[in-house]
């Protein structure tokens, strides 16, 4: 069947050589399409741009969601996601594969969000000091939902460590063991922080309604 034949070109049953592989070694259609993280890391380290694209597609939405819940404002999120993925790229050679790739990325993202928060606070303090007035809180265009806006206000009241644990558990769905790997503390501490964070959230929400 010629590749120039338009019908042949779009027929999904047609077999083609897979790029970068020898002819007739393309994966069967029933092969799992989702490449395992370990395989992805190997290909990324080998400089395969397609693997990098797959890694980006897999983790950019996660980073966006996690950064948002950790208080990175909408206008900084796009840049934050890029910074985090570029940091992943630059340090992937140091990734030993002892933890899951997602755990490692969560760790980088959490550190970056905390760093951005610190910079933001310094900037606001400087503005308040110099302008002698409190800056107007900017409306976040992407946060049109009242529930989300309320949640962000409640999360902002938590200490960063408690907030990170609560977000990883309740928003990201990680287990206590995985969270302990991300934040680098014992599992008991994770449970304790989660317990306190939940209690503080509900208490603050009661004051709000």
């Amino acid at each position: 069947m010629s590749d120039d034949d338009p019908k042949a070109r779009v027929a999904l049953t047609e077999q083609e050589p897979n790029m970068g592989q020898k002819q007739n070694t393309s994966p069967p259609l029933s092969a799992p399409a989702v490449i395992a993280d370990a395989e992805l890391v190997r290909s990324c380290r080998a400089g395969d741009m397609n693997a990098w694209r797959s890694l980006y597609d897999r983790y950019a939405p996660l980073i966006h969601r996690f950064s948002a819940a950790l208080g990175v404002p909408a206008e900084e999120r796009e840049d934050a996601a890029q910074d985090i993925l570029i940091a992943v790229y630059r340090s992937l050679r140091h990734f030993r594969g002892e933890a899951q790739l997602s755990t490692w990325i969560y760790r980088i993202a959490a550190r970056h969000a905390i760093r951005l928060g610190r910079r933001r606070r310094v900037r606001e303090t400087m503005r308040v000091m110099m302008l002698k007035e409190r800056p107007q809180p900017e409306i976040d265009p992407s946060e049109r939902s009242t529930q989300l806006a309320t949640l962000d206000r409640l999360l902002a009241k938590l200490a960063p460590k408690k907030r990170t644990v609560l977000v990883l558990f309740e928003v990201e769905g990680l287990s206590a063991k995985e969270i302990s790997d991300v934040v680098g503390c014992p599992e008991n501490t994770v449970w304790s922080r989660l317990h306190h964070a939940r209690a503080e959230m509900v208490k603050a929400a009661r004051r709000m309604v």
Binding site: Y56, D57, A60, P61, L62, H64, R65, A68, A69, R77, E78, A81, S145, Q147, L148, T150, L151, D152, L154, V167, E170, V171, E172, G173, M201, V202, A205, R206, M208, V209
Partner: peptide, 22 residues
């Protein structure tokens, strides 16, 4: 208050950014 927190968390789990941004 509890409903407010739960609804917010559920929405936060869907906040993955739009395709243009990605």
């Amino acid at each position: 208050a509890e409903r407010l927190v739960r609804d917010g968390l559920d929405q936060a789990a869907r906040r993955t950014g739009d395709e243009i941004t990605h």
